[in-house]
Design a binder for these strands. Structure first.
Length: 559
RNA sequence: GCGCCUGUAGCUCAGUAGGAUAGAGCAACGGCCUUCUAAGCCGUGUGCCAGGGGUUCGAAUCCCUUCAGGCGCACCA
């Protein structure tokens, strides 16, 4: 349990006791006790913690909030607690000011926990599956995948820090219609390259990469497949290009700092009979019906506006069907407690019906299934919006982005805003590598600290005692306060499935450090003070390192 | 037409379960390096929180409605 948890628990306990005493003395009667909630006031003059309990009680007590607050405060026992003073303010807030000494144990805590400072056991013992990117393997990844990758990977780290046992997973869409189209496109290019006058499929993949694949294929194998049966050859070409693409995706993502635990093949659901099993389950549950030769799912029974096709009239299951079987595999076959998917906004219409299907399968989708919908990325070049179109091959590739902008900045940028926000990626700004880029601001703070520590180790009088109470400047206290918030920040990021909270936290922390740096010198004559300040910046270094670690961004020791 | 997301300072966005005087960065202007990294710090100002109703002690936050932008509403994925 962290210092802040201990403090807020103590304040709540003391307040609850005061409330009991007030009621016992007959000052007012309370029928149902509202939840005691502490908030951290925006204004520092309002103390470290504040409660609005007195403003929640007037209705049932028939007493004005100020009266309730006054009665409560009169009954509060602060003896032996961390509370320095209790004040009533505004319409009836009760503000708690803490003794300054509450700060020091924070540094001891960080020094003791080091790389684990910020971790909690909230979800210990539970498994968590995070599926993200799952890019179509018919071509290279683009900017949208880059955002999903940064969000998903960091969300996974955050879940890990809250105690979950996390599995990062990539769902390979290697079955279905787009693979057929992929094969048609490959086949057409193959034959065109060998001089045949065949038309390119109208809705085919027009990207250069398709032609590239076939050039390479011909270079490797010559034209021996030209005489082959078309269907047979397509299968061969798909197998060839798909594997190349997957290898490329894997290495591109590795370069982006993303490492998956599981690469899950959609096709394997067909091969293993999982699709068929799931269809049977849904049928048995009475959630399906046949119409126009197709098998339908009763989505409308789960709040959707219309029912959806599971198996087409031609006997081929839909993508929806595959996704249901896939999630059944996650929950039922593999037994994950919680599953989260990161999807682009263009897929949000799919969420409700999938959740409905999971509910039909007896899975508690309401509690254990979530889809983080990220709004689509627009690309800004020369101040103009560039439309992305994968089929025309116009999309900015993930690799180009990383080459030009760098892994650290790319990951940071994509997590600067909440997934909900419509995000304009300004290529020119991102490529500028100027100080406008906030990632430098944070990394610079880290490098600065490392530089100081490097120099201090020689000067530091080892015999000087460590007296943290020598830290009394307001910049020092402020920095410690920001450090103490880190564990809560991770929990909040997990709770809201919003990784950008951590990114913004690193900026706040760096800012608190830079302010301290300009106000206080670490290298001072007074060796005891110096030692205390070194302890402070070491703690800061550790927390920046931990936070950047969650973000998958490097914490450089020199810049 | 229906559903989801968004609308807060000139720009990009925060805003904690409804809380106290709505915040930060960028941009603008003015200061701060003979001492630990100036990629830094300090200071100055800006808001009909898209508009209109409602709920209540109290609303940027919740409900209704209008407007604007994005994305969906396939036997595509």
């Amino acid at each position: 349990m962290y210092i802040r948890d201990k403090i807020s628990e103590q304040i709540k306990e003391i307040t609850a006791k005061a409330l009991d005493k007030a009621v016992a003395s007959g000052a007012f009667a309370v029928e149902t006790m509202p939840d005691l909630f502490l908030e951290i006031p925006r204004e520092k003059e309002h103390g470290e913690y504040s409660t609005n309990i007195a403003m929640q009680l007037p209705k049932q007590t028939k007493k004005p909030p100020r009266f309730i607050a006054e009665t409560l405060v009169a009954n509060i026992e602060t003896e032996g607690s961390c509370i320095d003073s209790v004040e009533i303010a505004g319409p009836g807030f009760i503000n708690f000011k803490l003794k300054k000494s509450w700060h020091y144990p924070v540094l001891e805590e960080i020094a003791a926990m080091k790389k684990d400072y910020g971790r909690s056991q909230k979800h210990a013992g539970k498994t968590f599956n995070l599926e993200f990117i799952s890019a179509n393997p018919t071509g290279p990844m683009h900017m949208g995948n880059a955002r999903g990758g940064a969000i998903g990977d960091i969300l996974a780290s955050i879940a890990d820090w809250t105690g979950y046992e996390v599995t990062r997973e990539f769902y390979i869409n290697d079955a279905g219609n787009q693979i057929v189209k992929f094969g048609d496109s490959l086949d057409a290019r193959y034959r065109q390259l060998l001089g045949e006058d065949v038309p390119f499929p109208e809705d085919g993949y027009q990207g250069e990469d398709i032609t590239e694949h076939m050039k390479n294929f011909i270079a490797e194998h010559g034209d021996v497949h030209q005489a082959m049966e078309s269907a047979e050859r397509k299968e061969l070409l798909i197998d060839y290009a798909l594997n190349k693409n997957l290898d490329q995706i894997k290495s591109d993502l590795a370069a982006y700092g993303i490492h998956y635990d599981v690469w899950f093949s959609e096709q394997s659901l067909y091969d293993s009979g999982a699709i068929e099993d799931t269809i049977v389950r849904l049928k048995k549950g009475g959630y399906t019906y046949e119409k126009d030769g197709a098998l339908w799912f009763k989505s409308t029974e789960f709040g959707s506006e219309k029912d959806d096709v599971l198996v087409r009239a031609n006997g081929i299951p839909t993508y929806f069907m595959g996704d249901i079987a896939y999630h059944a595999n996650k929950y039922i076959t593999r037994g994950f407690d919680r599953c989260i998917n990161v999807w682009g906004a263009d897929h949000h219409g799919h969420v409700a019906r999938l959740a409905g299907a999971l509910t039909a399968l007896g899975i508690d989708a309401a509690d254990n299934f979530d889809v983080v919908i990220m709004q689509l990325v627009r690309l800004l070049r020369n101040g103009e919006v560039t439309r992305m179109s994968k089929r025309k091959g116009k999309a900015i590739a993930l690799t180009d982005l990383i080459d030009e902008v760098g892994v650290d900045a790319t990951r940071f940028f994509f997590n600067l805003r909440s997934p909900d926000s419509h995000f304009d990626f300004d290529l020119d700004l991102a490529m500028e590598q100027s100080s406008d880029n906030p990632v430098f601001y944070v990394q610079y703070a880290h490098a600065r600290i490392c530089s100081i520590i490097r120099q201090m180790t020689e000067e530091l009088d080892a015999a000087a005692p460590l007296e943290l109470t020598r830290l009394t400047e307001k910049e020092e206290f402020n920095l410690i306060e920001v450090l103490s918030l880190f564990p809560d920040e991770i929990l909040a990021a997990e709770d809201r499935l919003d990784p950008s909270k951590i990114t913004r936290y690193t900026i706040d922390l760096a800012s608190a450090f830079h302010s301290f740096y300009n106000a206080c010198h670490v290298r001072v004559e007074d060796k005891v003070l110096m030692k205390a300040r070194v302890a402070l910046i070491e703690a800061t270094q550790q927390v920046i390192e931990n936070a950047l670690g969650i973000l998958g961004i490097s914490a450089p020791e020199r810049m």
